[in-house]
Design a binder for these strands. Structure first.
Lengths: 245, 245
DNA sequence: ACCTGAACACCGTTCAAGT
DNA sequence: ACCTGAACACCGTTCAAGT
């Protein structure tokens, strides 16, 4: 297994013509790579190979691995802002319409990149008033403006920003984890000797947990869509009561 | 800087007498270590040094690094169950009292181990019906029983479990991130040449983001306690309406 | 039975050297 | 100007060897 064979396995850009490399290109490749192989597989050397280049070449455009990850997260945030530009953000149907749109946009990013979303949710934001997953000055400014220009006070707008962040984080992290389950851990070394586990996520020994056993089906059912929309609706109602009073 | 000096820096158990090592001891040391030095510092070799032992010795008790992390998360979940045993779990004041107690118990774990909580929140649970951060059969069984025995149907109880998980995840992950900010990244190599950044988290160039600039104080204020309690109250009210109808 | 030394494959990162 | 080779310090992990 020489390095030549590996190149064929991943089938990347062969080797990029000298001078083709770019920070943007590297970030795109990194996102693509993580979406396919998972976060832990993203190493400088593997990404270099994927780009048909030695790992050391990346250091001219990326300030080390941490900076690479930061760049990846930034790109996802930018996807949000691009989506925002696509919408004509004029008199979208009130602040509720705006929040609905924003929530769905973030959700779409989380669903498209379930292996990356935890990064967006977990990495330290650049400033203490940037709460994940809305970690962009532009987005937060938009958010505040949308609410304040439609009757929120400074205080209620900020409170709404907090509730909204928590809501997105809680729901989307769980959803992303569920989606990422299939792709993220490609190698699982769990063939432990006597092989007495017939079905991995089936019964461990549920007989002492009657409720869980009985409700297993119900607990496993995927209602992500309806759940998200309903919780969002409830959040908007709550905010409405807050601003009306 | 020989290895001898390093031992003195961390001042661990010197070297444990032969035969002292235990899985439980290793997990305790790992939690202690992460609380102090952060997750990325937790390497097999560093943990071994912390215990006064070579890294390879750990492999007799821990099935590799992944298993170590799994064990650490399990221990935090166990802290929850221990706290549960401390409470006399008889007729605690209705299901609302139970949920209030449970929410606060999870929050306490998150606050005591902010560097570990993201693991609890992010790692794949053992089964699809175990949602972080309540990733324990015992806890989930308790949860369902507390609600069902007090008038919830199977469906409303499971729905409550979902809402409750999302709630905890969203709020506590943000709170843990805020707390972990001081401890987690001990080394930050950001002295970039011309040093034109006077104050790291102060003004990047906020002049084009008037709302954010004006509300900077408000956005940075820490209301974690009140926020958590109020959101919890709202969640309980919502659940109450659900079960009453 | 329990721990260690040596070794292997793999990281991130630096830097002089090639083109 | 842009990329590579070689090197360094550090990982996780295995396994024969020591006590």
């Amino acid at each position: 297994m020489t390095s030549a064979e590996h190149e064929e396995t991943t089938a990347p850009l062969r080797h990029a013509a000298r001078g083709t490399l770019t920070r943007e290109l590297i970030l795109s490749a990194a996102i693509e790579f993580v979406d396919e192989f998972g976060l832990t597989a993203l190493t400088m050397r593997a990404l270099g190979r994927h780009l048909g280049v030695e790992a050391m070449a990346l250091y001219r455009y990326v300030n080390g691995r941490e900076d690479l990850l930061e760049g990846v997260v930034d790109r996802l945030v930018t996807e949000l802002r691009v989506a925002a530009a696509g919408q004509d953000l004029g008199p979208v149907d009130g602040w509720q319409g705006y929040l609905q749109w924003l929530a769905r946009a973030v959700r779409q990013v989380a669903r498209e990149h379930p292996a990356i979303f935890p990064l967006m949710a977990t990495r330290h934001p650049a400033a203490p008033w940037l709460r994940p997953p809305l970690r962009s000055l532009e987005v937060v400014e938009d958010f505040l403006d949308a609410l304040i220009s439609r009757g929120f006070t400074d205080e209620t707008a900020v409170a709404a920003y907090r509730s909204f962040s928590s809501f997105l984080l809680g729901h989307l992290l769980l959803e992303a984890a569920a989606l990422g389950a299939q792709t993220s851990p490609p190698e699982e070394p769990l063939d432990e000797g006597e092989a007495d586990v017939p079905n991995a996520d089936a019964d461990l020994d549920l007989q002492s947990f009657p409720h869980v056993q009985r409700l297993q089906r119900l607990l496993s059912q995927d209602h992500a869509d309806a759940e998200f929309e309903q919780s969002l609706e409830e959040l908007l109602d709550r905010l409405d009561r807050t601003v009306a009073q």
